Amino acid sequence: EGEAHRVLFGFVPETKEELQVMPGNIVFVLKKGNDNWATVMFNGQKGLVPCNYLEPVELR
């Protein structure tokens, strides 16, 4: 579910809505907001990550 994206930079959450991710993680974007935040799914957890920390990736 969602579009696959690769994480470019590590992100440490500052609020409980945000999700910690590391460079190279593959996350699935469920929704992109107008505020430059994306709702993503990673390892069964859902949370917010900055859009500019993500790049689309083709999964084969």
Rank of each mutant, 00 (worst) to 15 (best):
P13W: 04
G24C: 01
P13F: 01
Y53L: 11
Y53P: 06
N52Y: 04
V7D: 00
E14L: 10
N52A: 12
E14W: 07
G33V: 11
Y53N: 08
A4K: 11
R6D: 06
Y53F: 12
K31Q: 12
L19Q: 02
P56C: 03
K16E: 13
F28I: 09
T15D: 12
L19I: 14
G2F: 07
M22E: 14
K46V: 13
V57K: 02
G10Q: 14
I26N: 02
L54W: 01
G24N: 05
N36V: 00
P13H: 01
T15F: 07
G24H: 04
F11Q: 03
W37G: 02
W37R: 14
V57S: 04
V49P: 00
P56K: 12
F42K: 08
P50A: 01
V7Q: 03
F42A: 08
V27A: 01
E17T: 10
A38S: 07
M41S: 13
E55H: 03
N36P: 06
N43E: 14
L54Y: 00
Y53C: 12
Q20G: 12
F42M: 09
E17A: 13
L19C: 04
N43L: 03
L8A: 07
V12H: 14
K32D: 00
L59H: 11
V49S: 02
V29A: 02
V27I: 01
N25T: 11
N25M: 09
Y53R: 09
F11H: 15
E55V: 09
P13L: 06
F42Y: 13
I26T: 08
T15L: 09
L59T: 15
N52E: 14
L30P: 01
E14V: 11
M41R: 12
E17F: 09
N25D: 15
F28G: 09
A38G: 01
M22R: 15
R60C: 14
L19V: 07
E58F: 10
E3L: 10
L8Q: 06
L59D: 13
H5N: 06
F42I: 04
L59G: 15
K16A: 12
V57R: 03
E14N: 15
F28V: 09
V57Q: 06
G24F: 00
C51E: 05
P13T: 04
V21Y: 02
L48Q: 07
E3P: 08
N43Y: 05
E14Y: 08
T39L: 12
M22P: 09
R60Y: 10
V29M: 09
Y53E: 02
P56T: 04
F11D: 06
A38E: 00
E55S: 06
V12D: 10
G24W: 01
E14P: 08
Q20L: 11
N34I: 14
V21C: 07
I26P: 04
I26W: 01
M41C: 12
F28K: 15
V7N: 03
Y53T: 07
N52M: 11
M22V: 13
K31W: 05
V29E: 00
A4M: 11
N36S: 07
N25I: 02
P23N: 02
V57F: 08
V27S: 02
V12S: 13
L30C: 06
V21S: 01
C51S: 08
R60L: 12
G2C: 04
F9S: 14
L30I: 10
P23Y: 01
P23A: 10
R60F: 13
Q20M: 11
V40G: 03
A38V: 03
R60E: 15
R6Q: 09
Q45D: 15
F9M: 15
A4R: 10
R60P: 15
R6S: 04
V27Y: 01
L59Y: 13
V29N: 05
W37Q: 13
A4N: 04
F28W: 14
E58V: 11
L19G: 03
V7C: 04
L48R: 15
G10D: 12
V40E: 00
F28M: 14
E17R: 10
Y53S: 06
V7T: 03
V40R: 02
W37H: 07
T39A: 05
L19S: 04
E3Y: 08
V27E: 05
H5P: 00
G2Y: 07
K46D: 03
P56D: 01
N43V: 01
V21T: 01
V29T: 02
T39R: 09
V29L: 11
L59V: 13
P56F: 00
N25V: 05
V7Y: 00
L54H: 00
G10I: 04
P23M: 02
E17S: 10
H5E: 04
L48F: 15
N36K: 12
R6P: 01
V29K: 05
V21F: 01
V21M: 01
F28R: 15
E55P: 00
P13Q: 04
V40Q: 04
L30T: 11
G10E: 14
G2N: 04
F9W: 10
Q45V: 06
V57H: 07
C51G: 06
L8D: 00
T39E: 13
E17D: 13
T15Q: 05
V21D: 00
C51K: 06
V27C: 07
G44M: 05
G47N: 06
L54R: 03
V40A: 14
W37K: 14
R6K: 11
L8G: 04
E58Q: 13
G33E: 12
G47R: 03
H5G: 01
P56G: 04
A38P: 02
K16V: 09
T15K: 12
V7I: 07
D35Q: 06
P23H: 06
L19E: 03
F11Y: 15
T39D: 08
C51P: 05
E18R: 13
W37N: 12
F28E: 14
G44W: 00
V40F: 00
L8H: 01
M41I: 11
L8K: 10
C51Y: 15
E55N: 02
K46Y: 11
F42E: 04
V27M: 03
T15Y: 08
R6E: 05
A4E: 07
L19Y: 00
P50S: 01
V7R: 01
N52T: 11
F28L: 11
T15W: 03
F42T: 04
Y53A: 10
F28C: 07
P50R: 06
R60S: 15
P56N: 01
A4Q: 11
F42P: 02
I26G: 04
K16M: 09
Q45K: 12
